[in-house]
Amino acid sequence: MDGLLVIRVRLPLVVVLALVVQTAVLDRIRLVGVAPDLMLLLAIAAGVAGGPERGAVTGFLSGIAIDLFLQTPVGLSALAFSLVGYVVGMIGEGVLRSAWWIPLTTALVATAAGEMLFAMAGAVVGESQLMRPHLAAVAAIAAVLNAVLAPLALRMMRWAVDGTGSAAGAVRGGAFAR
């Protein structure tokens, strides 16, 4: 199958599946009231697996999907997640990743940054309640939970945006592997 067609079929499939898990399962699995943010993790994993462009597109799709279930304005998560997906992809471009801890650290840092970005973007458009005193703690816990789920998300995203679905995609040095 053509590479782009694979993405067009598989990516929405993964986003919808993640949405089901996030809204129906993860809402009850909380650590001190904080749940992992699977939709943000998808954007990060897509950035790692497929580069900045696919990271941004995945972030936009997963963000819009979760926005429909939130009270904050639609498009807020899409904005934050697509930026995170893009930046993760950009930073990851030059890195030849063979160490197992690099995707974990990426998920940890990028999740914390993404949650902060979401709250700040929300504050800009008038949702000032998002900037709470314990925002940093929420971001940190979500980051740890996302890091735990990162290997799974990365595997799914390699299948969805890279078409390999295996660790072989891990040594993707950049453009020539795509």
């Binding site: 580069g51 941004a56 304005p73 639609v74 498009g75 899409a78 904005l79 697509s82 008038g126």
Partner: peptide
């Protein structure tokens, strides 16, 4: 250049949707 263009389009699209919703 194309990557930056995609990011720009997605960002503007998000901002537009936020504005419309609000």
């Amino acid at each position: 250049a194309r990557q930056r263009f995609v990011l720009l389009v997605l960002t503007l699209l998000s901002v537009t949707i936020i504005t419309l919703d609000q």
